[in-house]
Design a protein around this nucleic acid. Structure first.
Length: 665
DNA sequence: TTCTCTAAAATTTTT
DNA sequence: TTTTAGAGAA
């Protein structure tokens, strides 16, 4: 087999086959991954080895060779950004194809599937997707309903428990570990939480995958359809898949078995979220005829940076043996600096950035400052601002997580899904409608007691008596005492209006209506007058409306916003320094990288100390950080650093020592 | 009962 | 430093 492929490759190289000229730019390893189209194939793709290229060219080759219609090729990634990039790149190479390959994240793809079939597993088709924030609220409610201590059953702990079980495909009914009162309580919270989700006709992020697998298991004809349809499947960053994602993909590829997984066990940095490195390390065990390709040439970093990376990662015990060789020889040694405190650290970085830009020919956009934890960005920002350097925080606060965005969308979410109590509460309270905690609870109780949705209760006039709302014969409303209650009445009429137009009106029109008629606009404008910072909230709403205009209907837009797709959100192509966590920076590259806060307790993080597996994950994270750099790498740390509890002294990170600077030049 | 103002509380990494 | 909790005003 291997020989056959090499022969084939030589054929291309000799120019015998000029049918696929676009493959000329690929090296032998990459070609081998592209040309072996049939059956399962595992591609180990080291950092900077051109893995995205392989995926794109593989799709292109499949299409040009006529092996599959474009839309019957599925590419699965983890981030919307990666999926979007692949979509763009393939679009450029396929100018006038009737369809395009489906590039999607696990979550978006599952959401699309569930939108079509969720009714088969007991959901209403208008189900909503809860973000982390909202699911946290439900957990909090569950904990307090069960009279448990919030200090013991913290949202983050409960979340981790539930997420772990869902990612291992263990239902709340099947959670049998009740060995201790603590575990029993966690299980009870899990059950209560799931009941709440059902009540809201809602799914959390983990449910999207969980329920897709459930759907496939319970309705084999649905699975069969998708198995038939997707002839070729490729999965990016396979080292980050968890148990259920791996299961999902293998089910989907179960018929054609043309499954290409690409990944790098050294870049597995989501273990804390249930990712299993074994999924990639043991992939071959699942398929006896699995092929394997190693992409071992690094085109991104120079020799010096790559040596530093190798020196660190080779200390890890659990990893597939592999070499990665730099294409770019030489390079300046990694620079390590230790400062007195974080101010001098950030001051140095800012001045150094300006020097690099003024005298070394770099642009601000070529430079990134990476850190282990978000909290470190503050100090860096201060340093950059003081030195007049523009920056952008990559992956910081998500657009759709912003308060004003969630507020405006909550009206629509409630209108579309009348079971969504969270959105009802948010929308009715984000503008002064006169409904506070008590009124909202009262309305919910009335709806619960009559076993109907809040909006139905309103329509049936059951909310009469609350703030004087009364039902007219026509089904519309009048108030007993107009002065007090007109606002709540207006609120419900606005919801009614959205419900009526949701099917036909365009997404941006609906959002505009909500913004203007809910009173939110005047509220924001009022605030903007008092506080200049509030001005960008208005800008964000504008951006929201603009983004919505790219979607055919409101449901699709709501789904995209739930997945935090930033499609249509204008990202300015400006010349700014990038700030990011190392996690967020995965998949990116920069000419110059500063890794800051290289201190014990920060990197590796205090919570990982003493746990060898956790330390190994931190080390992989360090490897990911180092390999973002193309030309220059700086590592900085401070002797003392301000934390929430005063100044803290930290030693230099062990990772700096591991680089072994003597052998690094 | 709701709204607004002030004080404290919180930060690992995320689809 | 941004978000939540509590207290007082309307």
């Amino acid at each position: 087999m291997e020989n056959l492929i090499l022969q084939q490759i030589e054929k291309y190289k000799a120019g015998i086959n000029r049918k696929y000229p676009y493959l000329n730019g690929l090296n032998n390893e990459q070609l081998s991954a592209v040309l072996q189209t049939e059956g399962p194939i595992l591609v180990f793709a080291g950092a900077g080895s051109g893995k995205t290229r392989v995926i794109i060219y593989r799709a292109l080759y499949l299409i040009k060779k006529g092996l599959a219609e474009p839309n019957r090729i599925l590419g699965v990634t983890f981030t919307n950004k990666a999926a979007g990039e692949m979509r763009e790149r393939i679009k450029k190479t396929l100018d006038n194809q009737s369809s395009l390959p489906e590039f999607s994240t696990f979550h978006s793809f599952c959401l699309k599937v569930l939108r079509l079939h969720a009714h088969l597993i007991g959901y209403k088709e208008s189900f909503i997707v809860l973000d982390e924030d909202d699911s946290g609220k439900l957990i909090k409610a569950a904990v307090s309903e069960l009279n448990l201590d919030e200090k013991v059953y913290t949202i983050s702990k409960v979340k981790a428990f539930i997420s772990k079980h869902k990612s291992e495909y263990i239902n709340s009914e099947e959670t049998t570990d009740e060995s201790s009162p603590l575990k029993k309580n966690f299980t009870n919270i899990y059950r209560n939480y799931n009941e709440k989700l059902k009540e809201l006709n809602a799914m959390d992020f983990d449910d999207l995958i969980f329920n897709s697998v459930l759907l496939f298991e319970e309705k084999p004809f649905v699975l069969s359809f998708y198995q038939d349809f997707y002839k070729y499947i490729m999965v990016d960053e396979f080292q980050d898949t968890n148990y259920i994602q791996d299961k999902f993909i293998k089910m989907l590829a179960g018929k054609h078995k043309n499954l290409c997984v690409v990944g790098d066990d050294d870049q597995s940095i989501y273990g804390f979220r249930g990712a299993l490195v074994d999924n990639i390390l043991k992939f071959k065990n699942s398929f006896k005829d699995c092929k394997e390709v190693h992409l071992g040439k690094n085109y991104r970093s120079n020799e010096s940076i790559l040596n530093a990376a190798s020196n660190v990662i080779r200390i890890n015990k659990k990893r597939a043996a592999k070499d990665i060789a730099p294409v770019k020889k030489g390079g300046k040694p990694v620079k390590v600096y230790r400062f007195e405190n974080e101010e001098s650290e950030s001051g140095y970085i800012a001045r150094e950035i300006n020097l690099l830009v003024r005298h070394a020919g770099y642009s601000y956009k070529d430079i990134a400052v990476l850190y282990r934890i978000n909290a470190l960005s503050r100090g860096i920002e201060a340093g950059l601002i003081n030195n007049g350097i523009d920056y952008q925080i990559y992956g910081g606060l998500k657009f759709y997580q912003r308060k004003e965005i969630k507020d405006v969308l909550s009206f629509i979410r409630f209108a579309v899904n009348p079971q969504d109590f969270l959105s009802f509460k948010r929308s009715v309270q984000c503008v002064p409608t006169g409904a506070g905690e008590t009124t909202v609870e009262k309305i919910k109780r009335i709806a619960d007691e009559n076993n109907i949705h809040i909006f139905t209760a309103f329509q049936k006039g059951l909310l009469a008596g609350i703030k004087g709302l009364k039902l007219k014969e026509s089904g519309l409303f009048e108030t007993e005492r107009m002065a007090d209650k007109s606002k709540l009445l207006d609120y419900f009429e606005l919801i009614l209006k959205i419900k009526e137009t949701a099917g036909a009106a365009k997404a941006d029109e609906i959002i505009k209506t909500v913004f203007e008629e809910s009173g939110y606009e005047s509220l924001l404008k009022e605030k903007a007058e008092k506080d200049v910072l509030q001005n960008n909230r208005l800008d964000n709403i504008e951006a929201l409306i603009k983004a919505a205009s790219n979607y055919p209907n409101i449901q699709e837009f709501l789904d995209a916003s739930a997945m935090d797709t930033e499609i249509g959100i204008d990202k300015e192509e400006t010349n700014k320094v990038t700030l990011a966590t190392i996690h967020a920076a995965k998949g990116l590259e920069f000419s110059v990288v500063f890794m800051v806060g290289m201190e014990e307790n920060i990197f590796p993080h205090a919570k990982s100390l003493g746990d060898e597996l956790a330390i190994e994950e931190e080390r992989r994270l360090c490897y990911v950080g180092i390999t973002r750099a193309k030309d220059l790498l700086y590592m900085t740390c401070a002797e003392t650093r301000k934390t929430d509890k005063g100044n803290k002294e930290n030693n230099m990170s062990r990772f700096i020592k591991e680089i072994d600077l003597r052998n690094n030049n």
